[in-house]
Design a binder for these strands. Structure first.
Length: 764
DNA sequence: AAAGCGGTACTTTTT
DNA sequence: GTACCGCTTT
């Protein structure tokens, strides 16, 4: 066993062997973080710690699967059986199912994903006759999610004067009410959303000391991956579970915290030292991934952040090539240049397509890249498309499954009660919903006995409702007698879904059909693959299948399928976290795009953007290339762009600036700093406008239009808009980034313009 | 119930 | 620009 420690450098070894007491491992990019985690678990097992006493928490299914596989390759897999290893959500969902009765939930509660939650919120907003723009589902869910991640219950929310005055000020006083109703609905539906899994775990550990004690005893050793991404709710769970002996090992890199916008609290890692005074810190500073130039450039960038743990990432790899910076005229050229460059490098160095990644800040940027790739016949894989389980037809089928398992699941009920159409229209459903609200019963109960619950329907509708209820009951009766696959077949055939999707031959229908087939084949796989360690396959039910997939995302399923495929990867930087590629292109590195427009007013958000850029750079092993465009077509407008401040922040020593040679102009001397070239920027772009910018050539009078600084525009001003012409500003609403102006245009009447987008010229 | 329209919103998104 | 939602139309 001492043997495998030879694969580790000194700090790594210490991080593995120091098993007692709190340990924080600060793992710089590419420093072998996963290696430490896996070796530490293997080490513990080799020391004789029973696997069921070890809890290892990750953020993604992928990370936990990888860890599992790598542990299996280090030691006898049978000995790893029983490890509590998985994502925060899956581990605590498992515990919640076991202890559900304490929280007045059945153990087969349904887990609502974001889309389900939004539907519930929409329903509430509608029922309460609230404005669905003021209370946009996404925004409301965000607020609720934030509250839950900070362990603020609906009651707390409504009683907190600060929150209340905030909501009042933002003219959304009903948020608290929606939160309360939302929780009521979820509970009535025996459902929890993602945040509830953590929130309710906290409730469980807070209100039931016996249970807390039980799990404290069970988990002698706790490991947390990506600690910088934990939110308060997760932080507290870990703290409580570890309180007994504090054999806690957290691993992370504050410089790679890029999920604050989702509630991750970077303070958790920054405060570890004060939270656990007896802690030890090990810093993994040797980077095994990248060249010196890449490491140094990344370091020179990240020092601009104030809020961080000091570390010196270094590498013994070769100097390598400098970071290339390329300016292009617009996003189309940027894309062609990148794909052309990939083509070149590929042939020069005999590389596979999979050696390349193109990263961008926003998904919308992928389009231009895709087109360019297609033109050159470069195979690519694009990450971040609509998740398989999110597709409508799949959700429809899954809703049947959900209702069969948990008839109280209202969202599932509403989704399928009239799908495929069976004559139970909106009017009837509204009546059922109203009755459910009045009686506090579930839709399912009401539907089973409409007249008994004060719902008046004619005999035809009553019959149809009865048929629906009978059908679902007949499915439920077989839930534990048939395999998941057999149930799936049964449901699809008997519900009319097969008929509905398999009737016509339109490409869309064919696509849907394929997705349903795909789901069925997933069920087939599920029932025929044994759990680890099992030799015989027991009856795998639909119930088990649903528990399995509730917390699965697309990244998990699709990855496996074309893992070996040789393609260029196109993805957002967020999606690239944890990955590495020999050649990385970071595109659209422009002010207002990267850093994002929405972040530039806030120091902390700007630092997060900088960390994001740090993550992007450190994905590269051999060479990183940065590109930016002078103009970019966004939201139907041409925007002039400036190179990102992040380019300026990189130490010029590690940079090789490539520029387009404008007609009649020499390539600027290499010594010209970016700050200088930025000063000259306007002049240069204006010069190039006439020759290279098509839109500028076509559009005679587009000079002087600009996105105005917040606060400049005042009611009464006369302005000109490129499309709408002359108009008078009526009112300004909101402030800063959200400022909205109502403008009375001569031709088109009143328009609401978001000032962060609208390009205006002030006339008088 | 599907198709067709018009209005609107628009970062990132491990679960 | 375009995707998406919700409403109206057929």
């Amino acid at each position: 066993m001492a043997n495998f420690l030879k694969d580790l450098n000194e700090p790594q070894q210490l991080a593995v062997k120091t098993t007692k007491g709190p340990v924080m491992v600060i793992a710089g990019a590419g420093s072998g973080k996963t290696r430490v985690l896996t070796y530490r678990v293997a080490w513990l097992l080799n020391q004789g710690v029973p696997p069921f006493n070890i809890l290892a928490l990750t953020f993604t299914n992928k990370a936990s699967r990888e860890m599992r596989e790598r542990i299996a390759s280090l030691i006898d897999p049978a000995r790893a059986k029983g490890l509590w290893m998985g994502t925060f959500h899956s581990i605590f969902a498992r515990i919640l199912r076991a202890e559900a009765s304490y929280l007045d939930y059945p153990s087969h509660f349904t887990i609502y994903d974001t889309a389900d939650s939004k539907r519930v919120i929409k329903g509430i907003v509608k029922e309460q006759n609230l404005d669905d723009k003021t209370y946009a589902a996404g925004y409301v869910l965000n607020r609720i999610s934030n509250a839950k991640n900070n362990l603020i219950s609906a009651t707390d929310y409504n009683e907190d004067p600060e929150i209340q005055s905030h909501d009042l000020q933002s003219r959304k006083p009903k948020l608290g009410l929606i939160y309360s109703l939302y929780q009521q609905k979820l509970h009535r539906a025996s459902a929890m959303d993602f945040d509830d899994l953590l929130f309710n775990t906290n409730v469980l550990l807070r209100d039931f000391p016996d249970i807390l004690y039980k799990y404290q005893q069970r988990f002698d050793y706790i490991l947390v991956d990506e600690y910088q991404d934990t939110n308060f709710s997760q932080y507290l769970i870990v703290k409580k579970l570890a309180a007994n002996n504090e054999n806690l090992c957290v691993v992370g890199d504050d410089a790679q915290s890029i999920y604050a916008f989702r509630g991750a609290n970077i303070q958790n890692i920054l405060n570890f030292k004060s939270d656990y005074p007896d802690h030890k810190v090990f810093k993994l500073e040797q980077n095994y991934r990248s060249t010196q130039h890449i490491v140094s450039a990344a370091n020179s960038l990240i020092v601009h952040n104030k809020n961080q743990i000091h570390k010196t990432v270094w590498t013994s790899n070769g100097a390598g090539e400098k970071i290339q910076v390329m300016k292009t005229t617009n996003e189309g050229e940027e894309a062609s240049w990148v794909s052309g460059r990939i083509f070149e490098l590929l042939q020069q160095h005999q590389l596979p397509y999979s050696a390349f990644a193109v990263l961008y800040r926003t998904n919308a940027q992928s389009r231009a890249m895709e087109e360019a790739m297609r033109r050159l016949n470069i195979p690519y894989r694009i990450f971040g498309s609509v998740s398989f389980y999110q597709r409508r037809e799949v959700k429809d089928v899954l809703s049947y499954f959900r209702l069969i398992i948990n008839p109280r699941d209202e969202d599932a009920f509403l989704r399928i009660v009239n799908f495929p159409a069976r004559g139970i229209g909106a009017t009837t459903v509204d009546k059922l919903v109203a009755a459910a609200g009045d009686t506090g019963k579930s839709l399912w109960e009401i539907a089973g006995d409409p007249s008994g619950n004060g719902v008046k329907v004619n005999s035809g509708i009553a019959r149809k409702l009865a048929e629906f209820v009978t059908m679902i009951k007949s499915f439920s009766a077989r839930l534990y007698k048939l395999t998941a696959f057999e149930m799936g077949e049964l449901v699809i055939n008997k519900s009319g879904i097969r008929k509905f999707y398999f009737e016509d031959e339109s490409p869309e229908s064919i696509n849907r059909r394929e997705n349903i087939e795909e789901l069925l084949s997933g069920l087939q796989d599920f029932v025929s693959s044994p759990e680890e360690g099992e030799t015989e396959v027991p009856l795998r039910t639909l119930d088990e299948f649903m528990q399995d997939i509730a917390l699965l995302t697309d990244a998990d399923t699709k990855q496996e399928k074309d893992d070996d495929s040789n393609k260029v990867s196109l993805m957002t930087i967020h999606a690239a976290k944890g990955l590495e590629f020999p050649y990385v292109f970071i595109t659209g590195v422009e002010e207002n795009l990267f850093p994002s427009q929405l972040s530039i007013n806030s120091q902390s958000e700007l630092e997060e953007e900088r960390r994001l850029f740090y993550v992007a750079l450190t994905r590269a092993m051999t060479r990183a290339t940065i590109t930016y465009a002078e103009t970019r077509f966004r939201y139907g407008n041409f925007n002039f762009c400036e190179p990102s401040r992040f380019i300026d922040e990189l130490d010029p020593e590690y940079i090789d600036q490539m520029t387009t040679r404008l007609p009649g102009k020499k390539k600027p001397a290499k010594s010209e700093s970016f700050a200088e070239s930025r000063k000259n920027f306007r002049r240069i772009t204006e010069a190039s406008d006439t020759t290279t910018n098509k839109a500028a050539a076509e559009d005679e009078d587009n000079s002087g239009f600009a996105i105005l600084e917040p606060g400049v525009l005042k009611p009464g001003m006369e302005i000109k808009h490129q499309r709408f012409g002359l108009g008078n500003v009526v009112t300004i609403e909101g402030s800063g980034q959200n400022a909205k102006a109502t403008v009375a245009f001569a031709g088109t009447g009143n328009k609401q313009l978001l000032l962060k987008f609208a390009r205006l010229k002030i006339m008088g």
